[in-house]
């Protein structure tokens, strides 16, 4: 398991390739990457992501451990960035390896659902008009109920 919290960009292709390479016992590798999305109305200058150093790594590793308890998984990778990101930049990625695809897909979705509302990150949208903290959505909290 590898959990990385960093300010710098990451190379999604290289990370996915390195993760998938040498997985001889694993029939499935699922990768997901999250991208900074412009506002529906356009005009997003940047997304600023704040986090809680110290807790972030532990919280993500805890979620990944739970995923490994629940599904038959090989390796798990989570990379999450913080700092100032422009629209189109990649915020984070998750990769899961499993003998069979159902476990790999479900574990990746579980990780994403929990990272959204249980990993200590806070997003702020910067536009020409000012800055606004992104509010957590009820549906993100509700998404945890299915697990």
């Amino acid at each position: 398991m590898r959990v990385v919290v960093q300010q710098e960009p990451f190379d999604f292709g290289a990370e996915a390739e390195a993760f998938a390479r040498g997985q001889t016992g694993m029939g499935a590798v699922v990768t997901f990457t999250g991208v900074v999305r412009d506002l529906d109305t356009g005009g997003l200058e940047a997304m600023e992501i704040e986090h809680y150093p110290g807790m972030t790594q532990k919280a993500i590793a805890g979620v990944a451990e739970k995923a490994r308890d629940r599904w038959s998984l090989g390796d798990v990778l989570v990379i999450h960035r913080y700092g100032r990101l422009a629209p189109g930049e990649r915020i984070m990625m998750v990769a899961t390896a499993a003998p069979h695809r159902k476990d790999a897909f479900e574990a990746a979705e579980y990780l994403m659902d929990y990272l959204k509302s249980r990993a200590p990150f806070w997003k702020k949208e910067i536009t020409a008009e000012g800055a606004d903290w992104v509010a957590a959505k009820d549906e993100d909290e509700a998404a945890l109920d299915r697990w």
Binding site: G34, Y52, M55, A59, H80, I91, M92, M112, L115, K116, S117, R118, A119, P120, F121, W122, K123, W133, V134, A135, A136, E141
Partner: peptide, 24 residues
Amino acid sequence: ELRDFDAPLEGVREVAFFPPMTGG
């Protein structure tokens, strides 16, 4: 570690307050 507002503080060294998280 995430806790609720009724949690005891005995032995606690670090308390953090923040809005609901928006990761991912």
